[in-house]
Amino acid sequence: MLEVTELWPPIRLTLELAAITTVLLLLLGTPIAWWLARSTARWKEVVAAVVALPLVLPPTVLGFYLLIALGPDGPGGWIAGLFGGRSLAFTFEGLVIGSVFYSMPFVVQPIRNAFEAFGDRPLEVAATLRAAPWDSFWTVAVPLARPGFVTGAVLGFAHTVGEFGVVLMIGGNIPGETKVLSVAIFEHVETLRWAEAHILAGGLLVFAFAVILTMMLLQRRMARLEP
C-alpha cells in the first residue's frame, strides 16, 4: 500500500531545484538589488516592478508564457537545440528557469532593502579611505547587508519548494526530472492515495513553519547583536 521509498525522489528533486535556484538567484539578484538600491535612474522602479511581477501574477500566467518561451518556437527551444534537444519544457533545466523568475522578488527585495538601509555614509567613508568601489562592495556593503542576504536566500529557497502552478504547467510530471513535491502531493490527492499525501503535506507544513520561525528568530538575534 504505502510505499515510503516512492516518497523520497520528489523530496530530493525539490531540494535540488530549490538549492540550485537559490544559488542562481543570489548571483543574479545581488547585482540587480545593488543597482535598484544605488541607481538614481528615474525608471529604476519600472525594473523593480518587473522583478516584483510574480508576486501578483497567477502562476498560470508565468506558466503559459514559459511554456511558449521554452518551446521549439521560443528562445528555450533555441537553447535546447544547442544541446540536441528541441524544448526546455519537461526538463529540470526548464524548471530552474521558471523558478528563477518565480522566486526572484523574494530574493531581490530583501537584499535591496538591506543595501538601502545603511545609506551612503559607509560607502563614502570607504571611498575617503581610498577603497576601490569593488573593494568596498565586498568589504563594506555585503557584510552590512548580511541580514538581507540571509532573508533573501531563505525566502527564495522556501518559495521554490512551495512552487506548484508553474511546475504543473511546464513540468510534464516526469519522475526524477520534473515531478517535484507539490506535484507529487497533487497526484496523490487526485488518485485518493491520501496516506502518502498526508506524509508529504504534513512534512511541508512543518518545513514551512520551521523556515518562518527560524527566520524570525535569526532577525531578532541579528538585531540584538548589533547596536
Binding site: 530583501p110 538591506a114 538601509a117
Partner: peptide, 14 residues
C-alpha cells in the same frame, strides 16, 4: 536603531 529600520523595510514588501 539602524537594524530596526532595516527590519521594517524587509517586512514592508509584505
Amino acid at each position: 536603531m539602524r537594524r530596526a529600520r532595516l527590519q521594517g523595510r524587509i517586512w514592508r514588501v509584505d
